[in-house]
Simulated assay, not measured.
Amino acid sequence: MLTRRHIRIKVMQCIYALSSSREDSMEKQQKFLNQSIAQTFTLYLLILGIFRELHDLAELHLQQSSRKYLDSPDKAGPDALAKNSILKQLAGNTLLDQAFKKRKLKQWYLNEEYIKILFREILESERYREYLPVAGAYEQDRDFLIGTFKEVIAPNSKVYDFLEDEGITWVDDLPLVNTYILKQLKKLKPGSAEQFFMPRLLKNQEDMEFGQELLKKTLLRYEELEKEMEGKTPNWDKERIADIDGILIKMAICELLYFPSIPERVTINEYLEIAKEYSTPKSSIFINGILDKLVKDYKKEGKLKKTGRGLL
């Protein structure tokens, strides 16, 4: 689920939090990084939990002759939602049950008003009305859910605000998680195993080690890395460089010098893409200029020693 770019972003967040709080404990920052990575999967589970809660609410209304709760008889009932094949797959997934119990995830149970808001929006949507005549066929059930997720669930501002308050890094994780869930839904089949919805958070242990080492080496060599930046840009003034830009440049220099298996072009491209998303409009141009000059200097000085293919 998480790529190395996402891991770099989380390391950046840790360093930024440290610089903002003046917390100098390496142990606390490493713990924060580990928790931030783990919390991404918790967010993934909570988003899937919305689907499960919607299904349970639809079934509950059916059992209670739910049509009475609607304002007028011309509004569509929740029958199709309760019988949706994908929602039933999610609701009946025992591995998800275990994951929710293990992590004690009761956010939607304790804050059911958010599920009710989504429930009503779905039933009143044009997409739901168009879905009713074809409900029951697996492909149509899946297409409806994908469209509903993109149009109703993912952009809901109240759910967004709630999740922002629940997890300090979840605002940055939401686009990643939502995109991943959409990809999963598109790949889902009637015979998909329960494990399908329990993907690995990281590709392998090396990715976690990469994040921990990047954080550790950047922090331990922070002043040294800052000196590497001096004189690499006209009128250089560290007080005028955006905080995020400074952190990204130091992380990139750390990779260039102390991560020999990662090609320099990979490092530069990754940090330019992160800068485009998290810093100022001109940051990527500024960072690219510094890193290009550094790479040329390092090569001349024999300081850039790269081996292997490297990984993103």
Rank of each mutant, 00 (worst) to 15 (best):
I15R: 02
L220S: 14
N34Y: 14
T218Q: 01
R67N: 11
F286I: 03
L18Y: 09
L110N: 15
T94Y: 10
D141G: 05
K83A: 09
I146P: 09
E164S: 05
K186H: 12
M26F: 13
S279N: 14
M251L: 08
S283K: 06
W170D: 07
L33N: 11
R127W: 10
G302Y: 01
I274M: 03
K106F: 09
E239N: 10
F41Q: 12
I274C: 04
A58R: 00
L33V: 09
I262S: 15
A242P: 14
Q140G: 02
K227G: 04
D243H: 14
K189I: 00
K217I: 10
K282L: 11
K83Q: 12
R142L: 03
I262V: 14
D245W: 02
F100M: 03
Y138R: 00
Q205G: 10
F144N: 06
I268N: 07
G136D: 02
Q30M: 15
L145H: 03
R52F: 00
Q29F: 07
Q29W: 08
G289T: 01
L163G: 04
L45M: 05
L272T: 05
Y160S: 03
K158D: 13
E255P: 09
R120I: 13
E301L: 08
Q13F: 03
L2N: 11
E27R: 10
F259Q: 13
K238M: 06
N84L: 00
L105T: 11
N156P: 08
Y278S: 12
I249M: 05
D74I: 09
F197I: 02
E112R: 13
L214C: 03
I115G: 08
Y16L: 15
Q64K: 11
R4P: 11
D79T: 12
R265L: 08
P133D: 06
L81I: 01
L105A: 08
K68D: 14
E270T: 07
M208S: 07
K217Y: 12
Q195I: 09
Y131C: 06
Y160P: 00
N288V: 07
F196P: 07
E130Q: 14
K187C: 07
Y131L: 05
N156S: 07
P281F: 12
L202T: 05
H6Y: 14
L256T: 01
I9H: 13
